[in-house]
Every structure is written in C-alpha cells, then in structure tokens.
C-alpha cells in the first residue's frame, strides 16, 4: 500500500493538477526523492540546502515532522503525508 501525499494548490503544477499523489519511501527524505522522480521540480520547493524549507509544513499522520525527526521521520505503508505552505507574512 503506497503512501498518500496531499499536495497544496500552489504545488499542483508539478502533479498535473492532482490534489494527492502516491509515493513510497522508508523515510520522509526517501519519499521526497521518490516524489521528485515522478514530479520533477517538487523537491526544490520542499527543501532548501538539504533541509525542509522554513515556511513549508509537512505532516505525517497529522504530526508536524519538525517534532518527529524531520526528514528522517520513518514512514510506513498507509501513512498519510500532508504538505502545507505556512500562512505567514509580516510588515
């Protein structure tokens, strides 16, 4: 069973408009590589200098991966991954 990855509106240009795509990987890092293989360009929108971008949130089964090991967060078949850009700004 693959891992479903929910893609935010702003990144659907990379998934042909799909709201969710399937991917696989034992860790978030591997999952992002697998995403990149099928949807080139996506990785660069998620990572900066090898780490998650400050204003991109990734959740595995509703947990922000910043609290579960970041890119090394372990994944299992059937997990749900959600990508959401931060809603933020400032004067």
């Amino acid at each position: 069973m693959p891992i479903e990855v929910r893609i935010p509106t702003i990144l659907r240009t990379y998934t042909g408009g799909e709201k969710a795509v399937d991917a696989s990987g034992a860790t978030l890092s591997a999952l992002i590589d697998d995403l990149e293989a099928n949807h080139p360009g996506l990785k660069d929108r998620l990572l900066d200098d090898g780490d998650l971008r400050r204003f991109v949130n990734v959740y595995v089964n509703d947990e922000d991966v910043r609290f579960t090991g970041g890119l090394e967060t372990a994944l299992n078949d059937g997990d749900q991954v959600v990508v959401l850009p931060a809603v933020a700004g400032g004067a």
Binding site: N57, D64, V82, L84, V87, A88, G89, G90, A91
Partner: peptide, 22 residues
C-alpha cells in the same frame, strides 16, 4: 486565527492549527 508569532511585525498560523483548519 491566533498569530503564533505574537508580533507587531510578523504573523504566522500555528502549524498544528493550520493543519486542522485545512
């Protein structure tokens, strides 16, 4: 939403609340 930054010059939705909202 609550401004998790609590700042006069920045705002950011709390990441957990952001997921719940979406």
């Amino acid at each position: 939403m609550i401004n998790a930054a609590g700042s006069p010059t920045f705002y950011e939705f709390d990441s957990t609340e952001l997921l719940a909202l979406y």
